[in-house]
């Protein structure tokens, strides 16, 4: 009976290849970010200048040949200060994101896999850090150790890891209960295989999204703290700090205050675009 119904091993028609194209929005984000990073990294090489050297005779000079981006109210080079501020924000954000991602993902998988008491205690730990809005936590750490960028770094990492933890835990829980993982276990595959073939391919793209949003959040938090004078202290160049310093001069020298504003805008916009879909 079967022989009459089956014409032989003819496979179903070849499928359309899976879409591997990177979305345009993400490409634009990568382009913007590359521009900002190139500016931050290449400026000290191509145009070495001390961001702290004052020259009151040359205060608030408009952009020109000698100073491509002009000078601030103390006659310091805006080019040098802006690139130094971007390097600070970028490296602090990258460091925090990396520090948060590793324990966040590992603990998330652990909590979902082990369940029971391990899951409950880790989730409680997450609740502890989520009880308070992140900036309040960072602010208080900044008060414990003023003038210390490590306090910002620790504070921001402590806030960021929860997002990784929660998403990884939720994804892993769903996946572990899925028929695909159950089948792999029945077929005798070990935990390393399940992480490599089932969990990681789903978690990896998530890490990029959460990481980009996390970096954007970190950059905005650093600037906010600098802006209210409780973060990085002068004379270190920092985007928020530069804005508050230049605010009194915005009528005389609008180009000066606009620079850190445009810089933070491009940086955060680039990261949001790289993150792709909206935050969940």
């Amino acid at each position: 009976m079967i022989a009459s119904t089956i014409p032989g091993p003819a496979p179903s028609p070849a499928p359309v290849p899976m879409r591997t194209r990177i979305p345009r929005q993400r490409l634009i984000g990568v382009a913007i970010l590359s521009g900002v990073v190139a500016f931050a990294v290449l400026t000290p090489i191509l145009w070495p200048a001390d961001p702290a050297r004052q020259s009151l005779r040359h205060a608030l000079v408009a952009p020109g040949w000698s100073e491509p981006l002009g000078t601030d109210h103390l006659g310091r080079s805006m080019l040098a200060r802006l690139s130094a501020a971007l390097r600070l924000s970028l490296s602090l954000a990258l460091l925090s994101v990396a520090t948060a991602a590793v324990p966040g993902v590992v603990l998330g998988i652990l909590a979902a896999w082990k369940g029971g008491l391990v899951d409950r205690s880790l989730s409680l730990l997450g609740d502890v850090f989520m009880a308070l809005p992140g900036l309040l936590l960072v602010l208080m750490l900044a008060a414990i150790a003023p003038n210390a960028p490590w306090a910002l770094y620790v504070g921001i990492s402590l806030v960021l890891w929860i997002e990784y933890f929660r998403l990884t835990r939720a994804t892993t829980r769903t996946l572990i209960a899925s028929p695909a993982v159950q089948a792999s276990r029945l077929l005798g595959m070990g935990p390393a295989y399940i992480v490599r073939r089932h969990l990681w391919p789903e978690i990896a793209p998530m890490i990029l999204t959460v990481g980009a949003f996390g970096a954007a959040g970190a950059i905005m938090a650093i600037a906010a703290l600098g802006f209210v004078s409780v973060g990085v202290r002068p004379p270190t160049p920092e985007l928020g700090l530069m804005m508050v310093e230049l605010l009194p001069y915005y009528e005389e020298a609008p180009f000066a205050i606009l620079q850190p504003i445009v810089a933070i805008f491009l940086l955060v916009l680039g990261l949001n675009l790289v993150a792709g879909r909206d935050r969940i």
Binding site: A224, G240, I261, L269, N272
Partner: peptide, 22 residues
């Protein structure tokens, strides 16, 4: 919305101050 989300609150405030009151 993308532009607004790329600006921290205090920067939006700064821009509003510069635009409106000045």
């Amino acid at each position: 919305a993308s532009m607004l989300r790329a600006l921290p609150h205090f920067v939006v405030g700064l821009i509003l101050i510069m635009l409106v009151s000045a």
